[in-house]
């Protein structure tokens, strides 16, 4: 189900954050000229459809001390990538896990898993844990730590 215009107006109004008041959904509803019950029903639907991934606290990794991040990348057989991707993605310390196309010859990797840590050792340990899980199915791997954030802006939708 695609979001309708009112849904988009609602999401545009709350994407920067919910009002931090006792009745946040009522406050949003009043701002948009809607009913609080309608706002809540729409958010339930948007959550169920996946347009809203989740509602809650969005931490700043750096401010929590998670200043190290590593993009771990793996070359596994195409026939194995979905099974292994599901297993790697289920690790609680993996924050993102995707299958992506290779870019040969420079880039043989088809499985990407992001890890974060307070120290360089911590992300090395996480990479090692993923390597143990993938085992002999791994044909090549690398980890690209981020050495600098060059730009970071949130994703924004229009109203």
């Amino acid at each position: 189900m695609m979001p309708d215009d009112t849904d988009r107006r609602l999401l545009a109004a709350v994407q920067a954050g919910l009002p931090l008041v006792r009745e946040p959904y009522r406050a949003v509803a009043e701002r948009l000229g809607l009913d609080a019950a309608d706002v809540m029903a729409r958010l339930e639907r948007l959550l169920a459809s996946g347009a809203v991934r989740r509602i809650g606290a969005v931490p700043n990794h750096y401010r929590l001390g998670l200043i190290h991040n590593g993009m771990t990348v793996w070359d596994v057989a195409d026939a194995e990538v979905d099974r292994l991707g599901a297993a790697v993605g289920a690790l609680d310390f993996v924050t993102h896990c995707y299958r992506r196309p290779r870019a040969l010859p420079l880039w043989p990797y088809n499985l990407f898993a992001m890890v974060h840590g307070r120290t360089a050792d911590e992300i090395d340990d996480k990479r090692a844990a993923i390597a143990r899980l993938i085992g002999d199915a791994c044909r090549a791997s690398d980890m690209l730590p981020s050495t600098r954030i060059l730009k970071k802006t949130g994703l924004r939708i229009g109203a």
Binding site: R8, Q15, L18, S49, V52, R54, P59, R63, L155, I157
Partner: peptide, 20 residues
């Protein structure tokens, strides 16, 4: 939120499911 430990508090959107 004010001190920046949280980037924000609210819904996290899936841009692709919103047509993006």
């Amino acid at each position: 939120v004010e001190v920046g430990i949280l980037s924000r508090f609210g819904p996290m959107l899936d841009a692709e499911r919103l047509g993006g």
